[in-house]
Design a binder for these strands. Sequence first.
DNA 1: CGGGACTCCTGCCAGC
DNA 2: TGCTGGCAGGAGTCCC
Length: 297
Amino acid sequence: MPELPEVETVRRGLEPALVGRRIKSVRLNRPDLRFPFPAQLAETVTGKRVTALRRRAKYILIELESGHALLVHLGMTGRFTVWPPDGAARNLGEFYYVEQAGHAGDGAHDHVVIDLDDGARVVYTDPRRFGFMDLVEPDGADHNRFLVGLGVEPLGNELHADFLGTALAGRRSPLKAALLDQRIIAGLGNIYVCEALYRAGLSPKRLSGSIVRKRGPSPRIEPLVHAIRSVIAEAIEAGGSTLRDYAHTDGSAGDFQQRFDVYDREGEACRTPGCTSRIRRIVQSGRSSFYCPTCQR
DNA sequence: CGGGACTCCTGCCAGC
DNA sequence: TGCTGGCAGGAGTCCC
């Protein structure tokens, strides 16, 4: 899936097409994605004006004048395409394979088709169907099953050394698992956790609690916080990463992946000046972790 | 409760 | 060229 920087890139791309527009109609081409669509989805959304597009962690929230919001998670392969009134498609997250031209909402994996009052069409496409949608009731963000329990935003003020130290203290899981845990920091995924741990010089295998001192300051926490912030901020700045099947808002490639120091670089040279080690790949709880065995301890 | 394995689904890619 | 197995950015659920 797109991680937070990719979701933010999609949000920014969708914003000018949707905000201020009224939704004329919604077509669901199947009853479910990962989960069934809410029964009231179409009738709740139809006829409403879009007031804002927001992001929380890896969720996109399409806010409506009624106070409801359509919550969208892109899963691993979800994307939006905007078809303006003039017909030329604009891709908001693109796959590496090419769909047949002219399928504005009728492609094999086009699951949701939203028509707007200006004639534009917004299509949600998701081959793997790991994505999902939900309705958030007015003032219901604190109760929504997907939003409740989410941790802090990596770029928000709530992520600081005291917070992270408290969250990691006593944890017996590897650091990698803790940083992927959306209940602590919401929005980090496999790629950026690997990159942040490299920048912080911390091994993904190290136990979470081991970087927290029981008394006094824990000098390894602040560099980790900084590493998380910097890698996420830079990735957003670059327009996200184009992995095997994801691209930039306007169809061009996001280029942060060219700056990966460890992710998907197994066997390649560590980029730390003077280090002669090669990047290793291990599997932790079913996911690949990439790291430098010399620079990350 | 914390932690880990498993699962959903489709498609690509390396290897034979 | 064609088939097979392994792998993929997520996260809910189940089990210990």
